[in-house]
């Protein structure tokens, strides 16, 4: 049996074969950046607990041009995460019935994106209020 070499189709790069799978993998890949951002914040909290000088070093690190560029990219990746999260939401949540009719998927996506826009605007407004 060991001598039989049956052809087994390679699975290498399977996700590059179909745009649907490319979107799937792009959506999954955002997780790496969500983790990276959480670790940056965790480092900030730890530096904060070590005193003013330590926290100042953390802030200085963030002002590095590479860090700024990374965060600009992060911002775009999080926006993609938001878009993809609400795009698959109709498939991941139980059906919503309004007035005896099932709410269409596009409506759920639109509501989610609107909620994200409102929450983000409210958050930025809150930070601006803190700063004023």
């Amino acid at each position: 049996m060991a001598l039989r070499r049956t052809y087994v189709r390679s699975m290498d790069g399977w996700w590059r074969r179909d745009p649907f799978f490319i979107h799937y993998m792009a959506r999954e890949a955002t997780a790496v950046f969500v983790v990276a951002y959480a670790l940056i914040l965790l480092a900030g909290v730890i530096r904060l607990s070590q005193g003013e000088a330590a926290f100042g070093e953390w802030l200085e690190g963030l002002a590095n041009p590479w860090s700024i560029a990374f965060h600009v990219a992060l911002c775009a990746i999080f926006a993609y995460h938001t878009w993809s999260w609400f795009r698959i939401m109709p498939k991941t949540m139980p059906p919503v019935v309004v007035g005896g009719r099932r709410l269409p998927g596009a409506a759920i996506t639109a509501l989610g994106l609107a909620a994200a826009a409102i929450a983000s605007a409210a958050f930025v407004a809150f930070v601006a209020w803190l700063a004023s």
Partner: peptide
């Protein structure tokens, strides 16, 4: 992260 992620990154990583 879908609701606030991008705004958070903007505040802590760019604006600040």
């Amino acid at each position: 992260s879908a609701l606030l992620g991008a705004a958070l990154v903007f505040v802590t990583g760019i604006a600040a």
